[in-house]
Amino acid sequence: METPNLAPFPAQHDLGGNPRFRCTPVEIEDDAPPDDFGKRVDALRAVLRDKGLITTDEQRFNIESLPEAEYFDLTYYEKWLRAVAAVMIAKGVVTWEELQ
């Protein structure tokens, strides 16, 4: 039996040193505050956090678990929204059908 390879494989969100973006400049002018959508998502998440319905780690885990194509394609707050919705469904706070 072969020894399994135990070296950790970097997860998609673990971008430190990732060569894929080696030649991508940092868009330093891209620093506007979040748009209305982003602020709404952020505020909703904060309310749910204060009520004990979502933790940072639950949110993080659900963002990190997105399929790779979505992880790199969705905007920042679109990823947050999907994570918040996923946690609310998983906990039975809302139903999947309501969000269709």
Partner: peptide
């Protein structure tokens, strides 16, 4: 709020390299 570039793949990957 963090600026967008702080959240970008380019900054996150290259800042440490």
């Amino acid at each position: 709020y963090p600026p967008h570039w702080y959240k970008s793949a380019a900054y996150r990957s290259r800042a440490v390299r």
